[in-house]
């Protein structure tokens, strides 16, 4: 029996994020009152308390803040992917995104390396942003 994919149940503003991802857009929010980049999507700015948050499309470009290569799977679904590398990237608009990196072998990822976001439609309902290596400063 094949293990089932761990699938989120997005609600409210969470669904907005995944709906944009399905359209190949990585979104964050910009606070209209304090200009803060807000991520994940919220109903309230954690910087100033404002409810005026504007959903904004990101360039998808960032640099690796940290990473880990897992030699065990978190869930039977990922067993065939081991080892796989998970990345925290600081995006150029000023928020941090967590995702796996798809095109680099273990040992070939380092802090500070540029990444870009790609979109993987894993099911009819779910598209996941993922990372791949990028050349610094060059849009995809």
């Amino acid at each position: 029996m094949t293990a089932q994919r761990p699938t989120p149940t997005p609600r409210g503003e969470e669904a907005v994020y995944f709906n944009h991802a399905a359209n190949r857009e990585l979104v964050f929010q910009r606070c209209s009152d304090c200009d803060r980049a807000v991520f994940y999507l919220r109903t309230l700015c954690p910087g100033c308390g404002s409810e005026s948050l504007e959903v904004t499309v990101s360039s998808g470009l960032g640099t690796v803040y940290s990473f880990t290569t897992q030699y065990r799977a978190a869930h039977p679904f990922f067993a065939a992917d081991v080892p796989y590398t998970l990345v925290l990237a600081d995006m150029e608009e000023g928020f941090r995104l967590f995702a796996n990196i798809v095109d680099r072998a273990p040992g070939d990822v380092h802090i500070g390396m540029p990444v870009e976001t790609i979109f993987d439609p894993v099911t009819d309902e779910l598209t996941l942003p993922r990372f791949r290596a990028a050349t610094a400063g060059v849009p995809s």
Partner: peptide
Amino acid sequence: SVYELPYGLIHPIGAFGM
């Protein structure tokens, strides 16, 4: 988190690796 769940991070050691 719905933003972490789909990627297969092992709680908690994956986070501590980072």
